[in-house]
Amino acid sequence: MAIQIELIPSTVFSGKEQDEKVRFILNMVRRDKILVLEATLSPVEEKLLIEKTMDHVTKDFPGIEIASFGEEAVDLKSKLVRFLGGRMSGFTVVGPSNLVKEVKRDPDKLSLWAAHK
């Protein structure tokens, strides 16, 4: 079986509620797709995604691997931008953990290791 990777442009996400975004991601990932989103999730969305993932864990779906990359909201200026609803550029890789062995981030790239069980 081949591994399917989907690239989701940020327009798909714009205007979506937090719940909707999380449901969208989880629906795809549970169907064995690896997503590359042209967006970063907010901390609250990340939290929600982990919570909802836990609700769906089974023998065959142990959970997700996720990492995002982009402008970090660490300094006060970008925090302010994020707080005021400004878009943070970046992207997020998320996939089912039984396909994605590891997503590693270092200062200038994200690396993803995928394989079948």
Partner: peptide
């Protein structure tokens, strides 16, 4: 502990 996956294996 918080994790994004829990694999019983």
């Amino acid at each position: 502990g918080i994790a994004t996956k829990v694999d019983y294996r």
